[in-house]
Structures are given as C-alpha cells and as structure tokens.
Simulated assay, not measured.
Amino acid sequence: MPRLHHIGITVSDTVAATAFYRAATEGEVIGPLAKSGPAVEAATGYPGVEILLTFIRLADGVFLELAEYRGADAPRIDPDNGHIGAAHPAIVVPDIEASLARLAALGHRPLSQIMTATAGPLEGYRYVYVLGPDEVRVELLQEPH
C-alpha cells in the first residue's frame, strides 16, 4: 500500500532549518549526514555536489528531509504558495500554541491568527501558516478535539 515516507525540503542553512523544524514538531533529529560521489551526482544532476541531509522523524514515522546542496550552482526559487509548482509541508502538531511559542523564540511568527477549517478533509482542524527558513510556508495543524 502506498504511503508517504518523507517530504524533502531544500534549505540554505542546515542549522537554522533543523532548529525551525525541530521546534515546530519536537521530532527526532537524525543527522546531518554528508553525501557525495558519483551516485549522488547522477541522482541529482549536479557534478561535484555534496548534500548535507538532516532528517526529522515525526511521531507517525514520516520524515522531513532537509537537504543543503553544497558546491552546486543552483538558483533560489520563490516557494510562495501562489506560485505554480510550489509545495508546503502541513504538519499535525499536538498543541499548535506550544509549537508557535517555540517558533516565536526563534524569531518566526505566524502569518495570521489560528483559524479553524469548516469543510473538506480538514474540517474542524485548527491551522495557521508560519514563514520558515528560505521563505517556505509551513502549515501547522491541530486535530479537532
């Protein structure tokens, strides 16, 4: 049966990104792991690249994979949700206010007040977006009680 193993997010600063996603999720940090060589070059299409990978294991076993490409001349994209092809992680947390407080201590503020979804598969969920490292919009969700 298909299931999600991880979502990869390319970052410019592994330390800052790890601190952000760890604060948001309280997940287990694995890494960073440095990967390079012919297989990595072939898979990524970037000759000479080294990738610093850090994984954050969430409570359900799904991972956030933070990948910092070193030695690659890669352009920065604008990950704004309104841009076609942009994606955002939506992370279910047990206490949305506690996650926001930890993120605020790192200088990250929500983009709006916490809202409650009124229809569809998220009906009853509380949610809010936070602008994370590299301008990635991260949606925090709290399940209905």
Rank of each mutant, 00 (worst) to 15 (best):
E65P: 02
G107T: 05
T118D: 14
L103A: 06
I84V: 06
M115P: 00
V93D: 05
A105P: 04
A67L: 15
I56A: 01
L58K: 03
I51H: 09
L103Q: 07
A101W: 01
T116E: 08
Y129F: 14
A67P: 01
S112V: 00
F55W: 11
S99K: 09
V62Y: 07
P89Q: 13
Y46H: 14
R76G: 00
L111V: 09
L4I: 15
P110W: 06
P47H: 07
E50T: 13
A16W: 04
A43Y: 04
V92R: 11
I114L: 00
A67G: 02
P121G: 11
M115G: 03
A16V: 09
P38Y: 08
E41W: 12
V11K: 12
P47G: 03
A19N: 11
T25L: 05
P79M: 07
G132C: 08
K35T: 05
L58Y: 07
I7Q: 14
H83G: 01
R22Y: 07
G82D: 09
P79A: 04
A39S: 15
T10I: 14
Y127T: 05
L122V: 10
P121A: 09
S12L: 08
I91N: 08
E97Y: 07
T14F: 07
L33D: 04
L4F: 14
A117G: 00
S99T: 05
A72P: 07
E41C: 02
D80N: 15
A87K: 13
E41T: 06
P47L: 08
P79F: 06
A98T: 15
Y127W: 15
A67V: 06
R57M: 07
A104N: 04
I114Q: 00
L103T: 01
E26W: 02
T18K: 01
H6S: 14
D95L: 15
A119E: 13
N81K: 13
L4Q: 12
A43H: 02
Y129L: 08
L131V: 05
I9G: 02
A105S: 14
A104V: 00
